[in-house]
Each structure stands twice: as structure tokens, then as C-alpha cells.
């Protein structure tokens, strides 16, 4: 019962972060801020969701369930490693290509997307 509540809380929190990330990708003004939302929100939400699922696997504590939970946590760990790195690589590529960061002083005629 308590385990269920913890799992539901974790997964719901993860979904909340996901929605935040998706909103950020849609609404933020330029490339860098969008990648910021995507990198941070997705990583956090996937950690939370996978943590919740892994915990749910441990309903009955057996070796088989622990193995499945461990594999899920492995996936979470790899995503935690790779997602920020890929965001970083994309950011750097954008910077090297010369995309200007957004500022409030963008002139009226220029589109800021």
C-alpha cells in the first residue's frame, strides 16, 4: 500500500517534469533555452519514472524481481549519463555554427525563432 503510494507519487512527479520539458520545448524563445528545457526535464522525469517502476517491481522481494528492477535502474543510469551529454553536444554544435542566444533586445523586424 505504502509502496504503491510512493510509486504513484514518483511516476506522477516524473510525468509532471515531462510536461514541463515539453512545454519548455514549445514555448521557450530560442534554440539554447529549448535544449535546456529538453535536457533537464527529460533526464529528471525519466529518472523519477524509472525509479517508480523499479520500486513497483519490488512488490514481492525475489531475485527475479530484483534483477528486473536492477535492469530498469541501469537504463535510468545510462540515460542520466547520455541525455545531458547529447544536450551538451547539440549546444556546442549550435554555438560553433553561430546561433546567437536570444536576448530581450531583439529588434521588432527580426523573428526570434
Amino acid at each position: 500500500m505504502i509502496l504503491n503510494i510512493i510509486c504513484i507519487t514518483l511516476v506522477s512527479l516524473g510525468i509532471l517534469f515531462f510536461i514541463g520539458g515539453a512545454l519548455g520545448i514549445l514555448r521557450f524563445p530560442d534554440y539554447y533555452t529549448r535544449m535546456h528545457a529538453a535536457g533537464k526535464g527529460d533526464t529528471m522525469s525519466i529518472l523519477l519514472i524509472f525509479g517508480g517502476i523499479a520500486l513497483y517491481q519490488m512488490h514481492e522481494v525475489t531475485v527475479a524481481n530484483a534483477l528486473v528492477a536492477g535492469k530498469i535502474l541501469f537504463i535510468a543510469a545510462f540515460i542520466m549519463l547520455t541525455s545531458p551529454t547529447s544536450t551538451h553536444a547539440l549546444m556546442r554544435a549550435g554555438y560553433e555554427e553561430g546561433i546567437r542566444p536570444w536576448t530581450r533586445k531583439t529588434k521588432k523586424g527580426q523573428s526570434d525563432s
Binding site: T82, T85, A89
Partner: peptide, 12 residues
């Protein structure tokens, strides 16, 4: 030379 990417790749 990008320390972050190289280190992650070396790990992965």
C-alpha cells in the same frame, strides 16, 4: 577536444 563528450564516450 571536448572533455565531456570524450569522457562519456570512453565510459559508454
Amino acid at each position: 577536444k571536448d572533455l565531456l563528450i570524450h569522457t562519456t564516450c570512453r565510459l559508454l
